[in-house]
């Protein structure tokens, strides 16, 4: 099971500030729940406090899973959006996560 995680902060250097929305990005398209929260939870383990993770999903179940993950792990859910069957979440690790 390989995870598709991309570090974005370095790559976004020189780009307009508003595109630098996360420190890491996780592509969970085509993965069924609860795989996206499982992978996100592991990705968050690798973040430093204050860093953010952007996750892209296609299982609508994630709309319930990610707010719950944020609550349980004490993460800030910066945004949760759905458009054309794609859900995008941004989570920030504040304390120990």
């Amino acid at each position: 099971m390989s995870e598709r995680i991309t570090q974005t902060r370095g790559a976004a250097a020189g780009a307009p500030a508003e595109t630098s929305v996360a420190d890491a990005e996780l592509d969970c398209r085509g993965l069924l729940c609860p795989l996206p929260v499982y992978q996100a939870s592991r990705a968050i383990d690798r973040l430093l406090p204050g860093q953010a993770l952007r996750v892209v999903c296609t299982d609508p179940g994630s709309l319930a899973d990610f707010p719950a993950l944020a609550r349980q792990r004490g993460l800030a859910l910066l945004s949760a959006e759905e458009r054309d069957g794609v859900q995008v979440f941004r989570l920030r690790k504040d304390g120990d996560g």
Binding site: R29, G30, L32, P34, Y38, A68, Q72
Partner: peptide
């Protein structure tokens, strides 16, 4: 894949492991 207790919304760890295995098996990706 160690299934963490906070794997939500499933609240039982052993059922969480079953749900996770099924997701691995059935994910279109």
């Amino acid at each position: 894949m160690a299934t963490p207790d906070d794997l939500c919304p499933v609240d039982n760890p052993s059922d969480g492991a079953i749900a996770l295995a099924r997701a691995v098996a059935e994910s279109p990706a």
